[in-house]
Computed example of a mutant assay.
Amino acid sequence: MSTSRIRLTHDAYRVGWISALPLEMAAAIAMLDASHAPLPQPKADRNTYHLGEIGSHNVVIACLPSGIYGLTSAAVVAQQMLSTFPSIDIGLMVGIGGGVPSATVDVRLGDVVVSKPTGLFSGVIQYDYGKTMADGSFHRTGSLNNPPESLLTAISDLQAKHLVGDNNIARHLENAAKARPSMRASLTYPGTSDDVLFEPSYVHETDQPSCASCDKSKVITRAPRNSTMPSIHYGVIASANQVMKDALTRDRFATDLGILCFEMEAAGLMNHFPCLVIRGVCDYSDSHKNKQWQDYAAAAAAAYARELLQSSIRTTATPARTNDVVKIRSKIPVSKSAFFVRREAWWNSILNKYP
């Protein structure tokens, strides 16, 4: 990525990219082709933006306030972004989430889950929103908007390209690592030996910082993959103001609702900032959580978002740069048969005065 002092107008930005964590924002910035100079913003807008470009798209990146996560915080950031950059019509929520492995969907660490309407759900479901009935059962209420149709069309296009082998996600990660050597570790696949899935009923020892002492007999054996390239999964993402850290609860929700991933922000966006949610899998939504995969999972999600923008979302014309020289030409229509007659008396007086 190159650093640039290009300064555009607020109306020139069409893509709004929201991250929840600084490591997610860092991954987003690493995927830019160039950065743009900052623009002034209203006093009421408390966001901090990073502006740049991916291909022919101008992108606004914002991160949630440090330590303040969840549905409400995401909604406020999105609302302020739309107010300051009114031309945004492509919304992306990109970051990390907890995956849901199952017999039907082989979700692994470093994979990417993309929100897609499935069955009765819009692609994102707020699984903790509803009411408890007299018999103790929980009924979910309300619904969330679908991602914009243009984004659903784009993911169909990209999915087809990936199916025929046109997949550049690994190249995006490698190019970003070359451009930003200090981030190479974050952009590099950690290794299959560190991707361990335990039986749902086996709970991590709370006083142990890692799974080094966990019972290896409780590990679920899975067939090795032929490639370390992230697999892309499309389906329902579950969102709530809480972290999912229990495998039995994870599997119960997944069975009932078809969930592929759990996260904490998307449900706050869908009805006010219609967007596509893209999550890199950094853990298995169980008690064996650790932060080892977070950086790479964020990078994989950002690489998918870049791929989507670059290859499958059409470009629209953008306003001129504010520091460009604008040439104005005055064009006066003149008939081809027109002719000009000089002022003879005036011309003769000039010739007589200056023979």
Rank of each mutant, 00 (worst) to 15 (best):
A179N: 03
I313K: 05
S285I: 03
N146V: 13
S337H: 06
I125G: 02
S35M: 03
A247Q: 07
Y13S: 03
V334E: 14
P274F: 00
I29F: 01
R314V: 09
G136R: 15
V236M: 02
I169S: 03
P22S: 05
Y296W: 01
D194K: 09
I68V: 10
Q208M: 12
G97L: 06
L248G: 11
D286A: 01
S349K: 15
N241T: 10
G91N: 03
N146Y: 14
D11Y: 01
P319L: 11
S285H: 08
P230K: 03
V203N: 07
Y189K: 00
N146D: 14
G55K: 12
S156Q: 14
Y49C: 03
V334T: 15
K336A: 02
Q126A: 01
R5Y: 11
S285R: 13
I90W: 05
R184N: 03
Y284I: 06
S137R: 08
P355G: 09
S335R: 04
R140K: 13
V219I: 14
S87Y: 07
L92P: 00
W347L: 04
E174R: 01
T318G: 07
R250E: 05
A238R: 12
A247Y: 07
D195K: 10
N352Y: 07
F121W: 09
M31Y: 01
A103H: 10
H172C: 08
L71C: 15
T3N: 05
T192P: 12
V113T: 02
V59R: 09
A27R: 02
L23I: 09
D128N: 11
T9H: 13
D166Q: 04
W347C: 05
V326C: 08
G119E: 11
Q310I: 08
F339Q: 13
P209M: 12
N58H: 14
C275K: 01
Q159T: 15
E199A: 07
T72V: 15
E263F: 01
N323Y: 01
T9D: 15
Y189G: 00
S311W: 00
N241Q: 14
E205Q: 15
S102F: 10
K116R: 11
L23G: 04
I220R: 09
F339N: 09
T48N: 06
A301G: 02
A103Y: 02
P224Q: 13
K336R: 12
V341E: 15
A338I: 09
V341Y: 00
G258S: 03
S330M: 12
